[in-house]
Design a protein around this nucleic acid. Structure first.
Length: 174
DNA sequence: TAAGTGATCTCT
DNA sequence: GAGATCACTTAA
C-alpha cells in the first residue's frame, strides 16, 4: 500500500533477519535534487565480533567504529583504492554488525551501485533517513521466500573455512 | 587472469 | 614511517 520509510527499529533487529528483509525494499538516493529509487536485489551480512570476514573481527578501529553503533547508520568505506562500499549498520549498540548492499536493480555490484548513485565516504556515519539524502523504503512489494537465494559471501576467502562458507549472502532470483 | 588504486592496518 | 592488505571492476 503506502510507501513506508524504514526507521531505526527495522535496523536494530538481528542482522540476518534485516538482511533477508532488505531484499525487495527500495534504496532511495537523492542525486542532484532528484530521487532515485532502486529495488535492493543483493546483500551480505557481517554479523558480530567473531565474524572473521567482518572489519570488526579485530576490534574497533577508526574506520569501523560506526559498526559498533546501534542500527540505522550508514557505513561507507573505500576498497581497492577506487570503490566505495555501502553498508547499513544493524543490531544494538556495542554489537558490531552491518549489511553490505551488493546490488540493486540495474546496478549489479557494490562498487558499481555506489558509483552510479554518487555515494561516497561523506555518507559515512550518517543516519539512514531522508535528511541524509539516502534511505530505504518499503513499497509494499512482497518477495516470495523461494525467490530469495542464500549463498556464501563473495571475496572473503581470507576469513577461514568456517566463516567464508557461512550462507550470509541473500540474492533475489530473477 | 591480472592489474589498477589508495585508505587503512600492522608492524618497526 | 614502511609495507601488506583489501567486503572490487574492467579489459583482455
Amino acid at each position: 500500500m503506502g510507501v513506508k520509510i524504514l526507521k531505526k527499529d527495522f535496523f536494530k533487529r538481528p542482522t540476518l533477519i534485516v538482511a533477508k528483509e532488505l531484499i525487495g525494499k527500495y534504496l532511495v538516493k537523492k542525486v542532484d535534487g532528484k530521487e532515485m529509487a532502486l529495488m535492493i536485489t543483493e546483500v551480505e551480512a557481517y554479523d558480530g565480533p567473531r565474524d572473521k570476514a567482518s572489519h570488526a573481527s579485530r576490534g574497533m578501529t577508526d574506520r569501523n567504529a560506526i559498526m559498533f553503533a546501534e542500527g540505522g547508520y550508514i557505513y561507507v568505506y573505500l576498497c581497492y583504492g577506487m570503490y566505495n562500499m555501502l553498508n547499513f549498520v544493524t543490531g544494538e549498540k556495542d554489537y558490531p554488525a552491518a549489511i553490505l548492499i551488493r546490488g540493486v536493480e540495474g546496478f549489479d555490484g557494490p562498487g558499481k551501485l555506489t558509483r552510479h548513485l554518487k555515494i561516497d565516504r561523506s555518507f559515512n556515519k550518517m543516519e539512514i533517513c531522508p535528511k541524509s539524502g539516502l534511505w530505504v523504503e518499503d513499497r509494499g512489494e512482497v518477495i516470495a521466500k523461494k525467490d530469495i537465494i542464500r549463498t556464501p559471501r563473495i571475496g572473503v576467502d581470507y576469513a577461514g573455512e568456517i566463516w567464508k562458507n557461512k550462507p550470509y549472502r541473500f540474492v533475489l532470483k530473477t
